[in-house]
Design a protein around this nucleic acid. Sequence first.
DNA 1: CAGTTATATAATATATTTGTTATATAAGTT
DNA 2: AACTTATATAACAAATATATTATATAACTG
Lengths: 107, 107
Amino acid sequence: MSNLDAAFSALADPTRRAILARLALGEATVMELAEPFEMTQPAISRHLKVLEGAGLILRRVEGTKRPCRLAPTAVNEIDQWLGMLRQALSANYNRLDDVLAAMKTNE
Amino acid sequence: MSNLDAAFSALADPTRRAILARLALGEATVMELAEPFEMTQPAISRHLKVLEGAGLILRRVEGTKRPCRLAPTAVNEIDQWLGMLRQALSANYNRLDDVLAAMKTNE
DNA sequence: CAGTTATATAATATATTTGTTATATAAGTT
DNA sequence: AACTTATATAACAAATATATTATATAACTG
């Protein structure tokens, strides 16, 4: 599985996006991350594993705890790929075939 | 399923990303999009349905053809969400807990 | 009209994902 | 040492995703 596959796939789950949003506020342990969800701890551990595998979070060891925080790299890779689409979209905005398409749609 | 769920989920598949990359070059019909893949036409039709459902592409009717092109909106929504992460990542860069984390990791 | 082309849909098999419970492990506490 | 806490892992069930083949439909073409 490519990095992008893993990253987009990880972001596709609302629980995982919520976890990332929480981590955007700062580091948190597994239990802290699990608390707001109506879901068991093993389920959260798996989500964290997915996020880690996708390069979206990092974990360190602190005694029995495993505090997580956002990883810097994965978002860049995603941005880079999306940049291609963004560029195409702005370029296509004046493109002949799109103008024609819009005209036909409005007929 | 939220829009973001659908959009990220759609982007998680490499075939679909390749289709979008192709569409970044301009409009294309289903057969044109299917051609480069070792995959049947129904499979591509389904991928297109997923992309359309995620708001990533638009289709118009042209006789028996259904030319597809990139849709402008979905990428914005994704960008907006990722913006939250980007901001957190740049903010966290100077954050105390992260500095401490880095120090402990290096012990 | 008969045949072909472009595309969609249904049925189905397989693989993957996501959650649960039960259990293991390692560190912290008393 | 016994108990608790923090987390991980395994086994398993249910839901979802992806591809295939077969078939339907609607628009072209001769």
